[in-house]
Design a protein around this nucleic acid. Sequence first.
DNA 1: GCCAACGTTGGC
DNA 2: GCCAACGTTGGC
Length: 159
Amino acid sequence: MRYWLMKSEPDDCSIDDLAAMPDQTVAWYGVRNYQARNFMMHQMAVGDLVFFYHSSCPAPGIAGIARVASPAYPDATQFDAASRFFDPKSAPERPRWFNVDVRFVRKTRLIPLPELRAQPALANMRVLAPANRLSITPVDPDEWRFILTTMLELDPDEL
DNA sequence: GCCAACGTTGGC
DNA sequence: GCCAACGTTGGC
């Protein structure tokens, strides 16, 4: 079991939007970065836990918790000429881009980015690295536990 | 809207 | 395979 942080622009899909989806599940389409894609293809497993992070918005930060709900499968938007994620170099018989499905677990209080940065225990957290732009980053088990128990005052065993 | 960082593209 | 140009990300 691994832990992840996945960025979403709340204008596209916020934690509340995820909670309102049918089955509270959404396809994590639109990733067009090989490193992030490879995480989904090769390292994610159904059941992995995810911090749902709001990015490119007035108050960026962790907004909730989700779970990986499917294996990686070809991202449908790469074949859709009307989509902003269309990739003319991709073809159904050799897809370039994959996504997993992600299911809502719970909303949390918003932990703003500056509050994350202020924690010495999170000094090495991947998403906080200078100029990090990866939309999906691994989270160390120690970091996961620290954020859950100390910052959110939640019991990791009750998710 | 600015801008720094960084991944990707494409000419050579 | 190098590297300059360009596009994107994302915090501020």
